[in-house]
Design a protein around this nucleic acid. Structure first.
Lengths: 248, 248
DNA sequence: CCGTATTTGTGCGTATGTATA
DNA sequence: ATATACATACGCACAAATACG
């Protein structure tokens, strides 16, 4: 603690300015922990703590065996956008639910879907529509909570075979089957009104307030792998989140 | 890593169930790091990592010289709850805006406000109503983006004097003036319809779709310091967020 | 007011495990 | 199979904040 600040925060600041000043461009790897130790004459503990700070504000992502990649130089561009440090809790939250009434369809992508998946308009995609229901601890169906409408590129179409006995999320299914990793999930949340047919399935009055989640899963290579539209209504038309200070 | 899980996660699970099962009641202190080391025959590193996990999901708060206090036994009630690890980007996002048409009022807390602030119903609070407007780079007012309705305990009432020349957030104002730190922000997002008077201020049609943010700021000692209701409509009735994997 | 004990925060060194190329 | 890089885990020491006599 030379300048009234812990060493690791000092290093975190240096690295952060290194990123904004393009010495560590987006997409490149930060120096390895060992290199940081040598360059700044610090212990590995200090180097790791510094990198954790950068992870916490979403500037970098680390993968063991690979290194620490610079993900973005501007932690957040838009208003009210936030970087999570883990999608695991998000995925975890989908545990006690299950998809039912699954309908699949092969079709050419319309403009919206094509843009989201970064493909040409008209390219073949697999569409999966379903109802997500809440389960009790014992696995009994309690009530419908969401209408989901998923599009994946046709090359992942083989997941169709696994949909019957789906006990995880679609995304995990694709990750497992095709050996890819989701590194980023982009989500938009906006209000909507549920129409008659949607209301019937969700068991609410037609025209009542709902919330529309539009979500895109992107692989660590930057390829969109899944585009989801998700409508929830009634008590489920609500998003709770907790933001925490990192201690600075 | 005995059972496929790192030791510190294992300990974190034990402590978490200890909290939910009231062996460590809310308000009490967890065993000190030294005690955890002794009881579970682990190193201090492992004990600290475990406690960090609990901090990350908001179950506990630590203060040096004191110990680790149990803050709540239920980190997140609702589904689709997500723990951010930094509120700074959220605060940052409010930079190019300003509050206008600020109206203050002293009044007794109703039930909702009292519950949110963890006070008795009828306790004195300061209410601040205002319109948040978007500013251009040069500081010119562009358009209204939100109606804000803030309640703070009367003991922070002196911030009223600073509202005239407010160039930060209300929360930072309180932090600075009273020397407290916000460690956690809990937010609920839900759809709503804007009524006539709201629509007029927000410059949208009456009855159009809006989004209601309900937010509570909690200090590092677990005291609620601010309760905010925030309505946005039109193009602002949208929440964008990006979740990234850290590589775990 | 001072000194001391307690408790967490910071920092170092080292060793071993695991994922990746 | 080997090398690389991060993850987990142990040990130790001292600093800083707090509580208390």
């Amino acid at each position: 603690m030379r300048r009234g600040q812990p060493l690791y925060l000092d290093l975190a600041d240096r690295l952060a300015s290194g990123i904004t000043e393009k010495r560590y461009p987006v997409g490149s790897l930060l120096p390895t922990e060992a290199e940081l130790c040598a360059q700044f004459e610090i212990s590995r503990f200090t180097a790791r703590e510094a990198v954790k700070q950068l992870q916490a504000i979403g500037l970098v992502a680390t993968r063991r065996g690979i290194g620490t990649e610079v993900v973005t130089a501007k932690p957040n561009a838009g208003r009210f956008s936030c970087a999570f440090d883990s999608v695991s809790e998000f995925i975890h939250s989908a545990r006690l639910t299950r998809l039912t009434k699954i309908v699949t369809e092969d079709l050419p992508a319309d403009k919206v879907v094509a843009d989201a998946l970064k493909r040409e308009k008209g390219c073949p995609v697999l569409r999966i529509q379903a109802t997500r229901i809440l389960l009790s601890e014992k696995g009994r169906a309690l009530r419908p909570i969401a209408l989901v409408d998923v599009h994946v590129p046709a090359e992942y179409g083989a997941i169709r075979e696994d949909l019957k006995h789906l006990d995880t999320t679609l995304n995990l299914l694709i990750e497992k089957r095709y050996g890819i990793r989701t590194s980023q999930v982009e989500q938009t949340v906006e209000p909507c009104l549920v129409d008659g047919s949607q209301a019937k399935v969700l068991n609410v009055k037609p025209g009542s307030l709902g919330i529309l989640f539009t979500r895109r899963y992107v692989s660590d290579r930057g390829n969109p792998i899944e585009y989801v539209r998700n409508i929830q209504a009634g008590d489920d038309a609500r998003l709770n989140m907790t933001m925490r200070s990192t201690g600075r």
